[in-house]
């Protein structure tokens, strides 16, 4: 866990964001305490604290005094909006650049996308943005 190259607190923040995005953590769910985090992943509690601090600033989490950290209302929507904005630049653009290198035509890509559209409720969202 957290073996990536970035500072660990960034990796922790990223993990929690991903959990909120995927719905693994629902709004108003309590997240692990820094102590639980530290002992579970064998990291310095201050590192976990730093990650939580960043997430509180991003309004993904909020603190209930004496109780702990909870997922903020609207956190998922905010994260989705933010990730959506970055998706094209950070995910799609490099993929398209690679496709261009490999001489894959735009039509092929569109056809592929149509064939592999994610199922369920999120497809509506998919259609709106594309």
């Amino acid at each position: 866990m957290f073996d990536g190259p970035e500072p660990i607190y960034l990796q922790i923040a990223q993990m929690i964001r991903a959990q909120v995005l995927s719905g693994e953590l629902q709004e108003e769910d309590q997240v692990m305490s820094t102590t639980q985090f530290a002992t579970t992943f064998r990291i310095n509690p201050a590192t976990a604290q730093k990650a939580f601090g960043q997430l509180v600033e991003e309004k993904v989490l909020y603190k209930r005094r004496g109780l702990g950290m909870f997922v903020a209302p609207g956190a998922r929507d905010r994260l989705q909006a933010e990730h959506r904005a970055r998706y094209f630049d950070e995910v799609l653009a490099p993929a398209l650049a690679q496709a261009a290198l490999l001489d894959i035509s735009a039509d092929d890509i569109v056809a592929y996308v149509r064939g592999h559209r994610p199922a369920g409720g999120s497809s509506a969202a998919w259609e709106e943005t594309s």
Binding site: T34, T35, A38, T39, R42, I43, N44, P45
Partner: peptide, 14 residues
């Protein structure tokens, strides 16, 4: 060793 690290972190936090 890992039991020691865990105990250390838990007690340090507390």
């Amino acid at each position: 060793r890992f039991a020691f690290y865990d105990a250390l972190l838990a007690d340090y936090a507390e």
